[in-house]
């Protein structure tokens, strides 16, 4: 049995996916990237292999992606996270073929990818330098509200009435804005909903620039946040597909590409 490995070294988390010969996910893991990210990535991979009792030699091909992709020397190939994300979404099974737009929110950036008829990247855009509308923004907000990041969704769902308005997109200013909103007597729920709407609005505007088509596939860690998904549905006025484990879509895509590359290389050898 051969396995294929996709490893996505992002700014906050490193995601590893192993697929089998059928292209199904055999195992996956997520570990913090940390500052020694090469070491952490190698350790995470070894731990995963150990847990699954897979030998290193059984891995046919490794493709790395994400900001740290070039530093992961063990990889056979590196690929940009945009291509990997598209490949992951295309093969995820969730509503494949029904969407042509991917929204990905990562730790430090957000991307919008348009796919062509065959599911390949046609066009894409990314947010600019600042962290507004990214996972980091949500983390900051949760910290200021003194709740956990994964509670944000529940707070949003519990909110009734009007969400609070967040004007700043800059993390630093938004921080003080949240504090003053709390002091002004807004409920946590309303503030959380307001934050989600502000992110959804910002990204929708970015998406508007390149033009959204069909259903929207939403991945990256923050896609687990039901409140954020609901805000996106409202802002984009479209149906949104969220995969089961949205945080590993890109790593999965890298694994898919690894398998393809392995097959292509095999052909070359056989010829």
């Amino acid at each position: 049995m051969k396995y294929f490995c996709g490893i996505d070294i992002g700014s906050t988390a490193t995601k590893i996916v192993l697929t089998d010969e059928e292209g199904k996910i055999a195992a996956h893991t997520t570990a913090p990237t940390g500052s020694h990210f090469h070491k952490n990535a190698v350790e995470a991979l070894e731990a995963l292999l150990c847990r699954q009792q897979i030998k290193r030699q059984d891995i046919g091909y490794i493709v790395s992606t994400g900001y740290g992709r070039k530093l992961f020397k063990e990889a056979d190939e590196t690929i940009s996270e945009i291509t990997a994300n598209a490949a992951g979404a295309r093969n995820s099974g969730e509503g494949a073929g029904t969407f042509r737009t991917i929204i990905n929110i990562g730790g430090q950036d957000s991307k919008i990818i348009l796919l062509d008829d065959e599911g390949h990247v046609k066009h894409f855009t990314m947010n600019d330098k600042c962290a507004a509308g990214t996972g980091r923004f949500l983390e900051m907000a949760a910290r200021n509200l003194e709740i956990e990041v994964d509670e944000l969704g529940d707070y949003h769902m519990k909110s009734t009435g009007v969400p609070a308005t967040i004007n700043s997109t800059c993390t630093v200013f938004a921080e003080s804005e949240i504090i003053s909103l709390m002091a002004g007597g807004h409920s946590r729920e309303a503030i959380v909903a307001g934050i989600h709407y502000s992110i959804a609005r910002r990204i929708s505007r970015l998406a508007g620039k390149i033009g959204i088509e069909d259903k929207v596939f939403f991945d990256g860690g923050p896609a687990l946040n039901r409140g954020l998904v609901a805000s996106f549905e409202d802002e984009l006025m479209r149906e949104i597909v969220v995969p089961e484990t949205p945080q590993i879509t890109t790593a999965f895509g890298a694994a898919v590409i690894a398998q393809e590359a392995f097959a292509a290389e095999g052909e070359k050898i056989n010829v």
Partner: peptide
Amino acid sequence: ETDYSQEDTGQLSTRIEAFLESIKARKRR
């Protein structure tokens, strides 16, 4: 969109690589 600073190199290289990958994929097909 860029300027003379090197700050955005990481982002730029992701964009550029993704762009080139999509061109290569298109050519292959």
